[in-house]
Design a protein around this nucleic acid. Sequence first.
RNA 1: GGGGGAGUAGUUAAGUUGGUUAUAACGCCGGCCUGUCACGCCGGAGGCCGCGGGUUCGAGUCCCGUCUCUCCCGCCA
Length: 620
Amino acid sequence: MLRSHTNGTLRSQDDNQQVSLCGWIHRLRDLGGLILADLRDHSGLVQLNLTDFGSKDPKRLKQMRRESVVRVSGRVSKRPTESINPQLPSGEVEIAVTAVEIFNEVQDLPFIFDAQVQTKEALKLKYRYLDLRSPQLQTNLRKRAKVCSEMRKLFEAEGFCEVNTPILYKPTPEGARDFLVPSRHYPGTAYALPQSPQILKQLLMIAGMERYYQITNCFRDEDLRSDRQPEFGQLDLEASFITQAWLHDLAQKICRNIWNSSSISLKPLCYSDAMNWFGSDKPDLRFALPAIDITTSCSKALSAAPPFADILSTKTHKISATFASDKIMNFSRKNLDDLITHMQNNHEHKTFYFKVAQKTLSGGIAKWITPELLENMENLCLEVHKQLQQADLATSSPSMLNHKTDFSHGVWFVSAVTQHHHMPDTVSRLRSYLGDNETKTQLKKPGEYAFLWLHSFPLFTWDDDTQQLSATHHPFTLPAIEHQELFFALHNDNANNNATAILSEAFDVVCNGYEIGGGSLRIYKADMQQHMFSILGLSPQQIQKQFGFLIEALRYGAPPHGGMAFGLDRIMMLLLETNNIRDVIAFPKTTQGNCLMSGAPQKLQDEDLKDLHLKHSQPI
RNA sequence: GGGGGAGUAGUUAAGUUGGUUAUAACGCCGGCCUGUCACGCCGGAGGCCGCGGGUUCGAGUCCCGUCUCUCCCGCCA
């Protein structure tokens, strides 16, 4: 060992000990007759007293610049009482340094990475290894490792076996664009990097593994965001002979373990309720603020109101309302204008408001709201809140409404759309706007997490672009047990009017408005899987070519099975309360998919292309 | 594919209706300083104002193009 102790762990009990320490010079303070420095390693800081050393060897002292990496030898000594630093765990002692070895001097640093100043993202990414020295990123990476290690313990205890599935695999037609790796041996062919190990883990169930898990990276070649990287961590699992209820309990154990809280419960909420109440399949249930459907009750009352004339003239219109009481937020005229502007960025949607104070209506569309309509809206709203209470959702939130008197002060928001099956997403946007203004609204308490088990998703979604049914979850999802007859009654001829009414055995785990995981029971019979592909518009030839091996495998004794996957990056973002995915990944890429540190992706040389049987489509 | 924001010293920023030598803080270099811990004080060096074009007597500033970063929409089960 090059060192005898770690820096941050030295205490007054170590007084007089002879020590060798390694680390980086964190700061150096030359007071003239007294020279002090902080030495940093993973355990923390300790103060070096370099006064004697510096007078003997001023040349080497000069080399001990900030961030040089050194070994020092010396003796632990208690600091004078008046110089104890209570802020520092090792603040009662310092090291009287007698010898210094400089492993590496340091050039002028490209940025001041331990200062409060916010350095530009691009520069930090270029020197990521320096940025990673910051305490915050160190903590984040260590916390991520801790979560993974706890997960491994949990899965081992539950009888799961970790199996590595290949990174070089096969392009899949579902979902996102694949990253492709051209093959050298077979001209014109390519591997794809997996978007998830979905089929492979199902094959492991057919192989009799019974319980598989893997902590692995998955790849999607789509445009990036502050919470999205081209490769991302997944906590993936699959199990045989299980039910959805079993998966719910396992998911709950996983969340309790990660958040280290035994009181966490994944509260069940079905998809249609989520959409009707919150206009979203991943609502943030730290607060209530549900919408009510007033389409039928308000049409007559509002038919004379000019703002609604256009929308009410369409047959498919939908009108919803949400009440935000003064208990949550006292809206100024400016707040309201900001909010309406924020929500109005889609032409098919319109949102209006009116204020209530002491039974008097004012502002916005107040003059078209009749007393009967208002009464009706209050009753509908109370009814929904009652249902939320019964489902144990958002019950501790100050936004819950229990009595008529709760409506005496506040703002009603009325959203109208020309066409929608469920609540308009204006409802969802209104909720997230109010939620995000927590300094004003105080809807969210710090450190609070609201978990949901979203279930009963529709099996299919109608895709207007392709004029076809697509799988809501993925094409391996088992139709809801009670809807399997309906499923087999579907034809592959586009005349499936009631296909979207068929529910599935898919579910999502939602936390604070983020989808952190999802899964399903899977189809385990060949004929059902084949039928599914044909309903989705695949020809028998396509099915055979792309999924023939899976369908064949299902004929050799496939057990009933199901599983799920958790997004590791999202979970870490929630745990560490950051909204940028770069904070939870060691070497992230930019939003254009570049690695500024290494310069990846890199231009290919002609000989590389030749090996891969590729040509540039245009000169580069 | 579309929209918003940003790019000035090593770093973070300021820069007025276009007008002398482009400011400051931190960092760096030199000097002073015996109890600091974001040490302090004095002095100094350091600039293709992202890149290319245009308007103008004159452009960091106005216009066009382009590159990069960033945030959002589309997209991502």
